[in-house]
Simulated assay, not measured.
Amino acid sequence: MSARPVDEALAAVRLVDHHCHGVVTADLDRAGFESLITEGAAWPGISPFDSPVGVAVRRHCAPLLDLPRHAPAVEYVARRSELGWHEVNRRFLTAAGTDVFCVDTGYVPDRITTPQELAEAAGGTAYEVVRLESVAEAVAARGVEPGEYAETFRSAALDAVGRPGVVAVKSVAAYRTGFDLDPTRPTDADVTEAARRWLADGGRLADPVLVRHLLWTAVDLGLPLQLHTGLGDSDIRMHRVDPTHLTDWLHLTSGTVPVLLLHCWPYQRQAAYLAAVFEQVYLDVGLTLHYVGPARARAILAEALEITPFRKLLYSSDAYGVAEFHLLGALAFRQGLAELLQERVDADELSLPDALRIAAWAGGDNARRLYGLPSPDPVPAGEHD
């Protein structure tokens, strides 16, 4: 039986991954691999392989390592080591079918690929997303007087976004304070006093006033702003990262910069509401898709698309550390969206031309338009088959 039209279309889309990270450049033992396929901790007697994402790795990734589907975890890790990290990364990154990577370079607890190294392994192109908390913490580490912090941070942020290939900025305010913040721009005096406290105490940027200042600085920079929402590790206080907490801030920043809500689970419906009522809001369900796996991707995407305008859904993997996540994110997105759109076509709720347009938009065109990325090269005549 031949593939259905929407399946074929999404299988052929060369994806734009508008938010992701690098992958490790070292061979991993079982403990090291397991630590990278969970947002939680390694608990005695409980393996991340015995979870939805672990099962998805063994089901969908094992064949690319020349193993049978559902290969045992011990065989999977051994085969990974036998091939070596370079070959493992190449296989998964090329199989993902991603042409463009927008890479957050602000999280590097491991030795991971640079954006250029990631793109080279995949045969694609990379751009950079600047994490503003990292910029602020670098300013603090170099030493700055509290009264000079605001201007020094602004200048450092301008320098960072002026680097070649930077297309967006990102904030991890969700990890640091949550979104239930005063939405207004803080005064200079408030920023100076907050900087005095933070610079005296040290540590990560987690002062609510300075986080507000960072978000408003992002608006001033004029680039698309990516915001982590929902699913994350144990630093997250889930009730505080519902993106609807941003409603008043979105009113105040209307008409300024695009705001990209990342991940969103379990708040994909709330994110969809914001995308439906605020011109500047866009969303994805990256990270979520490889944790739920292809088996549940359709359900997550269905909720995200209940009311989201079709020009506002983007693809991201948010893959970090293991190249398997680049593959699983792409596979789950393609399969889940194809099932959803084809079902609506079969029910005559959507025309096939509309379904094909939506697939192309979400897979890459929306991100290219939003970030000002070049259009893909046209397929030469005679190479469509």
Rank of each mutant, 00 (worst) to 15 (best):
V241L: 00
D233W: 00
L214M: 15
L261K: 05
G255P: 12
G232N: 02
H263P: 11
R212C: 02
A275Q: 07
P243K: 01
H213K: 02
L227W: 03
A218L: 07
Q270T: 13
L223I: 05
R240D: 00
T247K: 07
A276Q: 12
R212H: 01
Y273V: 15
L252G: 13
V219W: 01
D220I: 07
L250Y: 08
F278M: 13
L215M: 12
T256C: 07
V285N: 11
F278S: 12
L283P: 11
A218G: 12
Q270C: 09
D242G: 00
W249M: 14
L231R: 05
L231S: 04
L225W: 04
P243E: 01
A271M: 06
T244F: 03
D233K: 01
P258G: 08
Q270D: 15
V257H: 03
T253Q: 04
A271K: 01
D233Q: 03
L231G: 02
L214Q: 15
T229C: 10
S234A: 14
H245D: 03
L246N: 11
W265M: 11
R269L: 13
E279I: 06
W265G: 05
P224Y: 00
T229V: 09
R237N: 06
V219H: 07
M238C: 02
L225M: 14
L231F: 09
V285Q: 10
L252H: 13
D220L: 08
R269W: 08
A272H: 01
Q226I: 09
H251R: 15
D242E: 09
Q268K: 09
A271V: 10
R212Q: 03
S234M: 05
L221N: 07
L214K: 06
Q226W: 05
R237T: 13
A272T: 08
F278N: 13
G255L: 06
L215W: 01
T247V: 13
Q270A: 15
A272Q: 08
L221D: 10
A272G: 14
Q226D: 14
Q268F: 07
H263F: 05
V241I: 01
H245M: 00
F278A: 13
L246C: 09
L250C: 13
V259M: 11
L231H: 04
D242Q: 03
T247Q: 08
R269E: 15
L221Y: 02
L283G: 11
F278Q: 12
L215F: 00
G286C: 07
D235V: 09
R269D: 15
W265T: 10
D242R: 00
R240G: 00
L214S: 10
S254F: 02
L231V: 10
H245K: 01
R240F: 00
R237S: 05
R240K: 12
